[in-house]
Nucleic acid binder design. Structure first.
Length: 772
DNA sequence: CAGTGAGCGAGCTTCCGCTTGACTT
């Protein structure tokens, strides 16, 4: 018999709270939502005022029956789900599913897990707020209607199994729109002039000063004219400006900023960050990792102050509370911070340690003093032209929070290195050692990374902390976008150098468009996006979510009825769905590229059942056209006739080896060499199927044979002892057998192998585990 | 394990947000 049963959302939270509440209270977890719209149907009765059809999902039945049992034994049930829309709905579903009495069940909330906050919460219970619950139901129903009405349109008009939704479709649109900006971008170049000067200051010390000309020169000729002027000029220090300034720390982490910084500083993917953070949370090392709040509890503020004062001195401490700026934030939790600031290290694995340290530094820095800096700008005038040179430098007078943490930026910061400047005096003469004009190209807008996409989504108020990682994974698993690298293209840039009264020209090369781990939209994503933006512009609008969120807020405050909101949305939406089903044609992304000069046949690209293809010739009852797959880095939208025709070069014969032909092609598992009925994979990033030579192909064959030899330890007819990924094992009749510990696999005899097989120390069948 | 690209039609796919384990390698 329990006196009091408290239900929270997370089991780790339950464990912590139980300690604060004492023995009269049992604290258990609902593991999030316990009820949802039915799984495989619309689950909304459109005819009957959009009545939702709820069910307890299969994987929640156990939790529900356990909770029901405990609730039946308790005198008082307290529901302490989060203080936001979803949390309120969880409370309401719990009351309804567990058969609790709404008038005696106590709804409590707290957004920091401290004894004080919990005690206060228990002293002021309330009842479930039905307006807030209705706002959640409206959100849920709207998302279901959009997702389950839109996706089937795609199945008919584009391809089966595709999906669309309020959040994912806009995420894909961001990437497609950005890709089109990049496609339409043409790089401009200008010449940037820098100089290296020497002179003697009033103390008689020789100084060296590097400075840049703020004016850019559009053409090489203009740059040359300027360098000629420089050659004839006298240079003097015209002006020295010293400006004090401060820099302030960033707020402690939210889910989104944690994902961004873990990507920039540690190279973690968004999903990796969340799973590592989950481990730290379960171990009690950090506060909850799915949050949109930058708020810190007063307990946290106090302990941070103590730790900072003790570690760095009181002058480094400055207590701050940050306002949460993110759109649609619900602030049910604290910011992400260490549970104990005095613990500088925590976590089992290396990744856990690294992420913990990052969280610790960011949270501690947020409670530290501003850094004080001094920025110096030296202007150098020249006698032959009104153009100046300028040198900027920065000195840190007091490091403050910089002692612990500096936030990284998405933009490459290599250009504005903060140098320390030497002492110079106004009017001082300078002699140029070298002055160079280097050609610089403008860059297109950057492609999104997983983390920068999350940042953008958060800015638009789309998605929630618990869904950022799943969104990124959904749009990739649907094939709409892919995380890829690109080697980039070599580009030649010109450089003019003035030294010792002579101007010399040289050329350098740089890589343009190199990409690492960026999100690229794929053809199917572009086709789906174009279809949706053409037919459902309202839903694909970047501000759609912000608009409906405003209405959800009105429902939450009781100004708007949820059913009327849904109804206003649904009638026109449903009409557009029906129209696009009956009038729109299938979308294939087809483009006619022209005629093949060799055969005179038409060349076209389109999306086929198995991906983007180029087609040579037209299909008719007595003609089967030739097909070739597009490469991973090509798009239907941008591929040229020449590029498309080049794809038919495969498969090709590269030569003979041991009197058998070697052919190169691209198969299911990438590029290969085929020889004597066997396949040999080309090395990724090394070999190119279009240019690989016979010599290299035979090399690959020999390498593979050598590798296979080492794989076989011994062979007894149909029994083989092999070296596998997980160590040596025995193969017989297509089944693998484990070798007993302490046995030298090289010394196994046929009889011993037979014995192991007969004993049947079969590893479990590898087939069973896969779920549909 | 290294291919497909048509058409027929049954039966299936799909949303967003709240939470953790199951699973195998």
């Amino acid at each position: 018999m329990t006196e009091n049963l408290v239900i929270v959302e997370s089991p780790a939270k339950a464990k912590t709270i139980e300690k604060f509440l004492g023995k009269d209270f049992t604290v258990v977890s609902s593991f999030g939502h316990i009820r949802d719209l039915v799984k495989n149907k619309l689950g909304v009765d459109v005819e009957k005022g959009f009545a939702p059809v709820y069910e307890v999902p299969e994987d929640k039945k156990k939790v529900v029956s356990e909770l029901r049992k405990l609730a039946g034994q308790a005198n008082t049930v307290w529901i302490a789900s989060d203080e936001d829309r979803e949390g309120e709905a969880i409370a309401w579903h719990l009351i309804s599913v567990l058969g609790l009495d709404p008038s005696t069940t106590r709804r409590i909330v707290f957004h920091e897990i401290t004894k004080d906050a919990i005690t206060k919460a228990v002293e002021s219970p309330r009842q479930v707020d039905m307006n807030l619950v209705n706002a959640q139901q409206a959100r849920r129903i709207l998302d279901r209607l959009v997702g389950f009405e839109l996706s089937p349109v795609l199945w008919k008009k584009v391809q089966p199994s595709l999906s669309a939704g309020r959040v994912q479709s806009v995420a894909v649109r961001l990437l497609v729109d950005r890709e089109r900006e990049i496609i339409g971008f043409s790089a401009d170049s200008a010449f940037r002039v820098t100089g290296s000067f020497s002179g003697k200051n009033s103390e008689g010390t020789a100084v060296l000063l590097k400075a840049e000309c703020p004016k850019k020169f559009g053409t090489e000729a203009d740059a040359k004219v300027f360098l000629e002027k420089c050659d004839a000029a006298d240079f003097t220090v015209e002006n020295i400006v010293v400006k004090p300034g401060t820099r302030s720390p960033a707020p402690p982490f939210t889910t989104s900023t944690l994902q961004q910084e873990a990507y920039r500083k540690l190279g973690f993917s968004v999903a990796q960050t969340m799973s590592v953070a989950q481990k730290l949370y379960e171990a009690g090392r950090i506060t909850y990792m799915r949050t949109d709040s930058t708020n810190l509890s007063s307990l946290a503020l106090n302990t941070a102050r103590e730790v900072i004062s003790g570690e760095y001195g009181a002058e480094y401490s400055r207590t701050r509370q940050f306002k949460t700026h993110s759109r649609g934030a619900q602030e049910a939790h604290e910011a992400i911070r260490p549970t104990y600031f005095d613990r500088k290290e925590a976590g089992g694995s290396n990744n856990e340690k690294k992420l913990y340290e990052l969280i610790w530094r960011r949270a501690i820095a947020s409670q530290m003093a501003d850094a004080r800096i001094e920025k110096t700008t030296i202007t150098i005038g020249m006698s032959s032209s009104p153009v100046n040179f300028s040198a900027t430098g920065e000195v840190i007078l007091f490091d403050g929070f910089l002692k612990v943490y500096t936030e990284s930026s998405d933009i490459n910061a290599s250009d504005d290195e903060k140098a320390i400047l030497p002492r110079v005096d106004t009017g001082m003469a300078l002699t140029p050692d070298t002055i160079t004009a280097l050609q610089r190209f403008t860059s297109p807008p950057p492609r999104y990374t997983e983390a920068s996409l999350v940042k953008k989504l958060e800015e638009l108020g789309i998605g929630r902390p618990s869904t950022y990682a799943p969104i990124i994974s959904t749009i990739q698993s649907r094939g709409y976008v892919a995380r890829e690298d690109r080697p980039g293209e070599k580009r030649t840039i010109a450089q003019l150098t003035l030294a010792k009264g002579k101007i010399t020209r040289s050329e350098k090369s740089e890589m343009a468009g190199k990409e690492k781990s960026k999100l690229f939209p794929k053809d199917i994503g572009i086709i789906v996006n174009d279809f949706l933006t053409a037919n459902f512009p309202d839903i694909l609008d970047y501000n759609f979510t912000a608009g409906v969120e405003k209405e959800f807020d009105e429902i939450a405050s009781g100004e708007l009825g949820w059913a009327s909101m849904i109804s206003d949305f649904y009638s026109p939406f449903r009409k557009t769905v029906d129209e696009s089903l009956s009038t729109r044609k299938r979308m294939t992304g087809a483009r006619q590229l022209g005629t093949d000069p060799a055969t005179g046949l038409p060349v076209a690209v389109k999306m086929s059942r198995f991906g983007p293809v180029v087609q040579l010739g037209e299909a008719s009852p007595d003609n089967k056209p030739r097909f070739a797959n597009l490469r991973r880095d090509q798009l239907l939208e941008t591929i040229t006739l020449e590029e498309a025709l080049a794809l038919f070069a495969l498969p090709r014969t590269v030569g003979t080896f041991e009197e058998k032909e070697m052919t190169v092609g691209v198969g299911k598992f990438g590029p290969y060499v085929r020889h004597d009925g066997k396949f040999y994979s080309l090395k990724k990033g090394v070999d190119d199927p279009y240019t690989i030579t016979a010599t290299r192909a035979t090399e690959l064959i020999r390498e593979k044979r050598e590798g296979d030899k080492q794989k076989v330890i011994s062979e007894f007819g149909d029994i083989r002892v092999l070296n596998g990924r997980y160590g040596p094992y025995i193969v017989h009749d297509k089944t693998n057998y484990r070798i007993p510990r302490g046995t030298d696999p090289a010394k196994l005899t046929q009889e011993e192998c037979r014995a192991i097989i007969d004993k049947g120390s079969k590893p479990k069948s590898t087939r069973g585990g896969k779920k549909k």
